[in-house]
Each structure stands twice: as structure tokens, then as C-alpha cells.
Design a protein around this nucleic acid. Structure first.
Lengths: 245, 245
DNA sequence: CCGCGATTCTAACCCATGTTACCGCGCGCT
DNA sequence: AGCGCGCGGTAACATGGGTTAGAATCGCGG
């Protein structure tokens, strides 16, 4: 058995939410991971500009993609949870325009680009599946662009909690209306394009309205309708329905 | 000769900026377009949620991808110029999470999804090439996210003019330091996440500093160093270099 | 169980950008 | 020619979120 194949199930679960995967295709996917590795929290896994010849499959933990300005301002462009392939796009791009950072201790599957190359030569349908997955990441980018350009602070924050709830639910990482949430307020501010001070004010407001509970490391949604209402949340950009490829 | 093959050259030019395309591959690409059509300015070509079975190749003119909130606020998530494939991602997604709008009169190549399907079955390398192109669009989304989250109004605007200059240059649509620019100030405001009033103030400021000239329908960059400096512009996210696929 | 850095939380003040309201020009329509 | 209106441009005022500074609390290493 390939190393990491016990935990790769979460990745298959994510794929199977959107498309059917046959037994043969599953075998090909399990064969992608050459080894697994662990990384501590606050580690830079990939730096913008590095030449890449592997991509990383996130098996456990949380990652972020981040872009920095010269003055030190940082913007997260996407968060990643177990099952995600956070730098699959590096296979075609050959280098990234952003860093990939751990937000918690992580377990990772290492996928050499030669193996993705073989897969794209042998399995046109799986190539379309992985193309789809990067296109869904792009859809998430667009929704974040909409958040940053047009939503208020409280709507952006509510939207983030809605998005993460659904993405975690797909891979079985929600617990009723709660999920583990390892970001501190500074990291949240870097997702939402706000200052830490204002993130704190905004959390207080969501608490005051009885919409969420946020303890260290865990979010609980107390009033989902209110949360989705504040966010103007429409999950269709996550493409959680099945399709033919 | 397939209809539209005279003007499809601009698309090949864009691809060949990033990868080599053989004569056989060029033939396959030219065979994608089943017909060409024209559209007037301010037309909705694709509406979010529509089931899609064709994608559109932009041969002439300008398009935008736009997402709206219930209150009518609109955010553009990307601009498209000749040579772009603005809804290629619809091939795997089957519907879009955003509208596609014309910003000027346009000429379009219609590409049935069956033809892309055949292409992905026959030409694994071309599949990787088109996968690359959608990944570059995602990189542009990330840069816009950074703009909206962390850059000031003047930096966002300067950044937009820098990005468009390079993208137009690739397809031969710049003229010295100028290029045609059909957006009005409201449309610019929808790209930058600002109000029209503030877009106007910001244009005045770029003019006052002698950085750009903006007449109806045309931008001229008067001081490129200053423009790129204000924007903190780094073109690497456009992946304009050649790579092996 | 003490000390100390990291993090959360708060308060006071500030400013970049939003809001509202209006003018004037150019262009297409009749 | 005259009318209407989309668009660029401005001014006066409002505000959401930024800035600065610090107190309170957490959690971990010794």
C-alpha cells in the first residue's frame, strides 16, 4: 500500500462530491503520493517564485495561500483544509505567485509532478477532474474578490464562516454546528482585508447578535439563518453538486 | 478554412507567449471554433447559473466577468481582451458563478464543449496548455484579491493599468505607451471596489502627478516607472515566460 | 506556580473612502 | 436647432474601518 493511503480518503471524498470516481481511477489517484510528511504550524511550505517539481496534498490540518506587499501587508487568497490540493496549479505554472503556509500542524502527501504528468497522459478524464478542482479554487478566489470589493466587514466574516462550514462538512470535519478553527485574529484579518482591531470588533458584534460562538480553536454557528443572511451567502460557487466529466 | 480562423491568431499568440504550439496542435486549436458571432457593447453573454455547452473565445473587443450582490453592488473579477478564453472554465464547471458581459462591441468564436472534450481525449498536452491558461486566470484573481484587500485606491488603479498594458502587449494591441480602453468610470469602479466619485478623484491624482493621460477610450502611460512604483507592480503573476508542458 | 510572550480585547482619535447633490459637456435623436 | 441623458467632474459632509496605545488574559516553559 502506498504511504498515506489511509488518509487520502478525505481527498477522494472531496472529489466524489463533484464527480464519480471508478475503482481504477481511485487506484491511479492513490498512486500519486510518493511519500507523506508532517509540518509544524507557521511553516512556509512553498515560497512564491520557487521552481516546483512536486505538489502537496493536504491530508490533515490547515494551510493558507498568502501574498505579501513590500510594506509587510499580507493577504490570504484562500484557506485549505484536509482533502485539498493547495498547489496543484504549480504542476502547470511551474512556480507559484504566492506562498503556501501552515496554519496548524499538518500531514501532507507529496505528489511528484512526473506522476501527474503520467496521469494526464493516461487518464484524460482524471485530468478533467483535476482541472475542475483548480477551477473551483478559482471560483473561491472570485467570491473572495467579491467579499473584499463589496461586502462590509461583518458580511465578509460571516461569509468566511459559511464557506468553511460547507467545505469542512464535505470531508466530514464538522461536528453538528461546530468545527475546529485554528486561525488567530491576525490571520483572520489577513483573510478579510481588515485590521486585527476591526476583526475583534466584528467578532464581538457577531457574538452580541447571538450568531456565532468563537472559543479558542473552535467556531459554533448558533444561528445559521442569521449568519447566511448577514453574509448574503449563496453556496453555488463551491460547485458541490455532481457533474459528468 | 474554419470560420474565425483569420482572427484566432491573437489567441495562438497568447498561448505561444507561454508554451510552444506545434503545427498539428495549431490545427486542433483552429478546429475548436464552430462559428463566430458578434455582440454589441453592454450585452450579457453568459448569466451566472446557466447550463453551458459552449465556451466563447474572445477574438475582438473587451469583456468582463462580474458578480453582483442583492443590493445591486457589482464586482468585476477579471477583464478580458482579444485572445482570451473568458469562460473556458465552464467546460468543467458546467455553469458559471458569474456573468460574462461585453464592455465594447465584440467578435467571438463559439467553441462547443464536445470539441473541447475530443481535444482533451486526443491531446493530453493541449489539455495541460488550457489547464495552464485557466490557472493563469486564477493567478490574476489572486492579484486582484491582493489589490482589493491591501492596496490603496491609487495603487489599485495604477495596478490595473499596468496589468492591462502587459496583457494587451502580448497580443499586439498596445501602441507605444497607449492602448484603447473602453471602460467608463463606473465600470472601473466596479473593477477596483471603489465608488465612481473616488475613481474620478483618483484619476485626477494620477493625472496631476503626470503619470497617465486618460482621454475617452484611450490610456497613455506617461511615466511607467512612477506607475509601476505606485502600483507596487510585479508582473510575475501573469506568467509571461515560456515553459515546458 | 511563576514569568513572559502571544493573543484578545478596549478606548480614543483619525482618515481614506463613501454619500449626496449638483453642474456642464458632448453626442445622438427627432 | 433643441432636447435628453449618459458621463465626467466637483464640493460638502458622513462614516466604516484604520491607527495607536495599552490593559487583561491565556498558555506554556522552567
Amino acid at each position: 500500500m502506498h504511504s498515506g493511503s489511509r488518509v487520502i480518503g478525505v481527498h477522494l471524498k472531496k472529489l466524489r462530491q463533484r464527480v464519480d470516481i471508478s475503482a481504477e481511477e481511485e487506484r491511479a489517484i492513490r498512486g500519486l503520493v510518493s511519500e507523506t510528511r508532517e509540518a509544524p504550524a507557521d511553516d512556509v511550505l512553498v515560497r512564491a517564485g520557487d521552481q516546483l517539481n512536486v505538489s502537496l496534498l493536504l491530508l490533515e490540518g490547515w494551510l493558507a495561500r498568502a501574498k505579501d506587499l513590500a510594506g509587510g501587508e499580507r493577504q490570504m487568497t484562500e484557506l485549505h483544509v484536509a482533502g485539498d490540493f493547495p498547489d496543484l496549479h504549480g504542476f502547470t505554472l511551474k512556480r507559484l505567485d504566492h506562498d503556501v503556509l501552515t496554519l496548524s500542524p499538518c500531514k501532507l502527501g507529496v505528489v511528484p509532478h512526473e506522476r501527474i504528468m503520467e496521469l494526464t497522459n493516461k487518464y484524460p478524464r482524471l485530468t478533467r477532474v483535476y482541472w475542475l478542482m483548480t477551477n473551483i479554487d478559482a471560483a473561491i478566489h472570485r467570491e473572495w474578490t467579491l467579499c473584499l470589493g463589496q461586502r462590509t466587514a461583518i458580511a465578509r466574516m460571516a461569509h468566511l464562516f459559511c464557506e468553511l462550514y460547507l467545505r469542512l462538512q464535505v470531508v466530514g470535519l464538522t461536528n453538528g454546528d461546530s468545527y475546529d478553527f485554528p486561525l488567530n485574529q491576525r490571520e483572520v484579518s489577513e483573510c478579510l482585508g481588515l485590521t486585527v482591531v476591526h476583526v475583534n470588533r466584528t467578532i464581538q458584534e457577531l457574538r452580541r447578535r447571538g450568531i456565532i460562538e468563537l472559543t479558542r480553536e473552535k467556531v459554533t454557528i448558533l444561528d445559521r439563518d442569521a449568519l447566511e443572511g448577514v453574509a448574503e451567502f449563496d453556496p453555488s460557487y463551491l460547485y458541490l453538486d455532481k457533474r459528468q466529466l
